[in-house]
Design a protein around this nucleic acid. Structure first.
Lengths: 111, 111
DNA sequence: CAAGCATGCATTGTCAGGCGAGGTATATCT
DNA sequence: AGATATACCTCGCCTGACAATGCATGCTTG
């Protein structure tokens, strides 16, 4: 397939993995954290987020456990796995290549 | 919507517009040109390409005309419009922001 | 001359991911 | 009591990438 353009679409997973590489976290927090980091530019929609969690757990990139909900609503925490770390690294490499490729194509001098 | 992650997916259109900003061209040529520029990393599939042409023409970003096929198969040439140029510029700006955003999220220091 | 390959365009149907809309539950503040 | 923040989840739609398929021309090579 060789760096298909379609790959550009799946970066939700990568962002989640990146967030989890800093330590266990949960949906709501990741969502808020990403929003804050990007100055509100990127809002991960809940539907997007939770489907991504299912997908990532399915493929063995993350594991989950329920936190005890003494205070407030219950939370499902996620942990990144070894597989997930490898996936993250691979995704980042692809992202680098993708950036270079698109930059090349879009910044190509006229004529 | 504010720079949705989904926007990352639609860069086929942008690449085509960029190619056409250098002068009129046609499907096969754009496809070969992109493949060559990226060292074969990016192969625009025909189905993708021609669907994109329809989409872009529909939205007024490009216009098309048949070249005379004296030699070889007939070709449909495409011209970028004013609207298309504006679209290209806007897309490039979005691309810049997107890059910065993802870089920020993926290169964020651990801890 | 037939077969194969490069050139060239086009459509149909499938699939995956983003996300709008809806639902549930708890705790706090007014 | 109602609003708001925290927190999770799912269904169904839409869009874009692309495999598969089909068509036509012209050149080359066995």
């Amino acid at each position: 397939m060789a760096i298909a353009a379609d790959l550009l679409r799946g970066y939700t997973d990568t962002i989640i993995l990146s967030q989890l590489s800093h330590g266990d976290s949960y949906g709501y927090r990741i969502s808020k954290n990403v929003a804050e980091l990007t100055g509100g530019s990127l809002e991960m929609k809940e539907a997007t987020l939770y489907t991504a969690f299912r997908r990532l757990e399915q493929s063995g990139c993350i594991r989950s456990y329920w936190g005890d909900a003494q205070t407030g609503a219950r939370r499902r925490y996620y942990t990144i796995t070894e597989e997930g770390l490898r996936r993250l690294e691979a995704d980042c490499a692809v992202w680098e290549e993708t950036q270079q490729m698109l930059d090349l194509l879009l910044k190509e001098d006229s004529q």
